[in-house]
Every structure is written in C-alpha cells, then in structure tokens.
Design a protein around this nucleic acid. Sequence first.
DNA 1: TTCATTTGACCCAG
DNA 2: CTGGGTCAAATGAA
Length: 304
Amino acid sequence: MEEILSQILDACKLARELESSLLLYVDVASDAHYLLRSCEEIVGAFNKAVHGLYAMQSQAPSVQMLLMSAREGTGNLLCTGIPGQISPENQPAVTESEGGLSYLNSGAPGKLNRTSCRNEGISIELVPAQPHMENPPDDGYTWKKYGQKEILNSRFPRSYYHCTHKHHYGCQAKKKVQRLDDYPSTLEVTYCGAHICSTSLTPILIPNELMLNSASNGKNDENNNDGSQGGHLRAQAAVQTVASRPTLIQDHNWFNREDSNRYTEQMQGGGEVDCSVAEFADAMFNLGNNSTFDVIFSQSQGKP
DNA sequence: TTCATTTGACCCAG
DNA sequence: CTGGGTCAAATGAA
C-alpha cells in the first residue's frame, strides 16, 4: 500500500510540475509535444497506482472474478492493460492483477452474443471510471453515442457507441459502456467488431518515397474533414516513413495492432512493449536529429 | 448553423 | 411477450 501511495504522490508531483511550467513559461502552453509528453507521464504515473490498486482488489473477491463467475462458459481469457493507457512498467507479460480484464471471444455467452455482435469478435474490458464522468477513458478512437438504455436489474444505463467513421469509411466497430452495479467506479466496455478506419495501412512495407509523396501532397487530410482521423493518418504516414528506414528500425520492429490504435514494439530479446501512438511517436521523435515527423507535420499542418 | 447527445419508438431474437 | 439493440427526431451546446 505504501508503494501505491508513493506512486500516487509521484503522479501528483508531476502534475504540479506541469502546472508550474504552464504558469511560469508562456512557451510551454504552445508546445504540444512537451504537453503531450507531460500528460502521458502523469497518466502513466497514475496508471501505475491504478494497476496497483487492481492488484490489491484481486486479493479480495474481485470485479474480474465476479464477472467471470457471472459469465459461465466464457471463452479465452486475455488480460490486457487498460485501453488507451500506458501499461504498467511497460512490461509485456501482463497478469490479471496488473490491470483491466479483457475477454476476447468470438462467441460470448448469453445476451452479449445477440444481434450485430453475433458473428464478430467481442472484447469486454473493465476500465476504471473517471471521476464525475460517464465517459470511459479515451481508447484512441473517436466514438459517437447513438443510444442509451435502461437495462433490467441494472442500476445504471447502458450507452451505445459506434465509430465516428461509420458513415465515411463503413467502419463497423461499436462499443457498449455500462457502469457495474456492484462497483460503480468500474466501467464495463464491450467492443464489437474491428475498426477498418485505421488498420488498412501497413507499416514498413510501403516505400519511403511513396509515403513522403503522400504526406507532402496532404491527401490524407484533403479527403477527410475529421481532425481525429487526419491525426491518425498523419501519424501512420509518419510511422511508415520512419519505419521504412532500415537504419532506424534496426532495433525496433513496430506492428500496428488490429484491435486498437496502439503499437507493439518487438524487442530484439523477443519481448513486446505495448505503447500508445503518442508514446510511439515520442520514441520515433527521439530516434534521430532530423526527424521525419518535423518534415511531415510542417508540410501537412495548416492545410484544410 | 453544425454537430453531438438524448430519448422515445421501433425491430427482432429468444 | 419481453428486453436488448438501433433508429431518428428533438434538443442543446459550441
């Protein structure tokens, strides 16, 4: 417990440092890269504490265990970090006690299996609810809420979301979010279907020149009114461009995971490190003095 | 004016 | 028939 408190205090300290910087230095407020890194650091520090608290919960009858017992016949069980957040210690081997729980199931039992999710992969994740907010933590995608229903024998309503790009790109990804009756501080997020709005590009295989042309033409943004998706595409273009440099990826092989807007780094030793796009971009920024990111963003920024 | 959210109605599997 | 999932008009915020 002392260690967790220490982690919470560390996170608070980081937050105070950022606050001080914002108050003291005008330049900081306009330095998106610095702000991004600072926020990621703070979130990561708090996440460590959250995962520690999850570990403590697992010693008592946990939310996870209750859910498992409630869903008899559940298929493969995969424990992951909380989506959109930094996995603890950046360790690839994640145990149940370290974070959110995820079921990956092509045929989940009972009512979860109904209607449009019947023939699609279902992923159920438990995430800590943000205080005073109904919305689940950012998972890297943009969602549009299309419905909310009172559920029988549940104290809290269930919210229904589909991918923002459903109409533009036909992305069929959906999610349901419901606060757990017994653990109101925990949200159960059920993902249905895979995103096709950010998985069509394959890193490493695309020639450097092609990506540079694509990025410099700004085509990604021209056909796209949505800022978020534009960001995804810009980041991916940048990733592909950087990744296509053999010298830069000598020690890092990057893979875009299909189920989320996150990247997995395959280390030479065989282990994997899961990270967010922001972390990934950050790592790429630091790979060389003449970062391709600078070139790409300077060329694409400011275009409609 | 645009876009996201809310909410009642409807659909359909069980 | 019941209840979960989806649709679409109404509403509100930016």
